[in-house]
Simulated scan of single mutants.
Amino acid sequence: MLTRDLLGVGRRLGDVLTPLVFFAMVITLFPLGISPEPERLAMIAPGVVWVAALLSALLSLDGLFRADFDDGTLEQLLLAPQPLALLVLAKVAVHWLTTGLPLALMAPLLGLMLALPEGSYLTLMASLALGSACISLVGAIGAALTVGLARGGMLMSLLVLPLFMPVLIFGTGAIQAAIVGGPWLAHLAILGAFLAVALMLAPLAIAASLRISLHG
């Protein structure tokens, strides 16, 4: 399943690049709309980066199961002898590899535009990598619940956005702590704990949500 979906990414490059382009555009426009002063930009940079990353991930979550639903693949997955939770975990992993990981890798380049100090780049990448994995896992639950709806993107956003708040708070807090020289590892440890819990519970919830969406 992992290999199949990774190969399918090459046929949907537009869908993969859209969140990354959106992320870059938001970060680029903020210095123009707010102020080019480095002190002010550095103050708001953690929140700007994380909100932009969160919205970018939401752009691609709606289509996580949509193509497989349209061509009947999801019905076959429910009948497969392999556990559905493991199959959907592979699909979520592909979403993170093509959205969350690229966002984390390109964040330091865009951090230059927001006057982030060099010492915060490692924390920025680590927090986005951990947080985006949590977003992919939790967001996939909403995507599974709304996959059968014609316009489920807005409903999915309303369902999962409140669940993203802890990730947003601690992800932003890690970068702010790194900027002022504070203990940022504690924030990353909490994000890691969120990810561990999501890895255990989210695949089961996604599988149950898909069964509800397909069979009621």
Results as ranks from 00 to 15, higher is better:
17 L>T: 11
77 L>I: 09
153 G>C: 10
67 A>S: 15
132 S>D: 09
78 L>T: 12
6 L>I: 10
93 A>E: 08
108 P>F: 10
86 L>V: 12
140 A>T: 06
77 L>S: 09
123 T>V: 15
143 A>T: 05
207 A>P: 04
59 L>K: 12
100 G>I: 06
194 F>C: 08
177 A>F: 08
3 T>K: 14
82 Q>W: 11
38 P>M: 13
52 A>C: 10
63 G>K: 00
59 L>Q: 12
148 G>P: 08
205 A>Y: 11
92 V>Q: 09
180 V>L: 10
97 L>S: 06
46 P>E: 03
148 G>Q: 01
173 G>F: 01
8 G>K: 10
101 L>S: 05
64 L>A: 02
108 P>G: 05
158 L>F: 14
36 P>Y: 00
27 I>V: 15
179 I>T: 04
102 P>F: 02
32 L>K: 09
173 G>Y: 01
46 P>N: 10
14 G>K: 10
196 A>W: 02
110 L>F: 15
157 S>D: 11
194 F>D: 02
1 M>H: 15
76 Q>T: 07
165 M>S: 12
53 A>D: 07
114 L>S: 04
111 G>Q: 05
162 P>F: 10
119 G>T: 07
146 T>H: 14
9 V>C: 15
122 L>K: 07
106 M>P: 06
33 G>A: 14
65 F>I: 08
172 T>Y: 00
199 L>N: 01
109 L>R: 08
170 F>C: 00
150 A>P: 08
76 Q>S: 12
136 S>C: 14
166 P>I: 00
193 A>F: 12
109 L>V: 13
160 V>N: 07
10 G>T: 06
91 K>I: 13
79 L>F: 07
170 F>I: 00
108 P>A: 10
89 L>P: 02
21 V>N: 06
92 V>H: 04
47 G>C: 04
166 P>A: 08
124 L>H: 06
12 R>L: 13
122 L>V: 12
204 L>I: 08
158 L>P: 02
166 P>L: 02
178 A>H: 05
20 L>R: 00
94 V>Y: 03
32 L>Y: 14
113 M>W: 13
79 L>R: 13
38 P>Y: 11
71 D>I: 05
89 L>K: 11
108 P>M: 10
24 A>P: 06
171 G>I: 03
192 G>V: 07
88 V>Q: 02
190 I>F: 12
213 S>W: 06
170 F>H: 12
10 G>L: 15
114 L>H: 00
123 T>G: 12
27 I>E: 01
61 L>Q: 04
208 A>N: 08
162 P>C: 11
105 L>Y: 08
108 P>Q: 13
84 L>P: 00
126 A>T: 07
176 Q>D: 13
30 F>S: 08
124 L>Y: 01
175 I>Y: 00
67 A>V: 14
147 V>C: 08
71 D>E: 11
188 L>W: 02
22 F>V: 12
123 T>W: 01
145 L>E: 14
167 V>M: 11
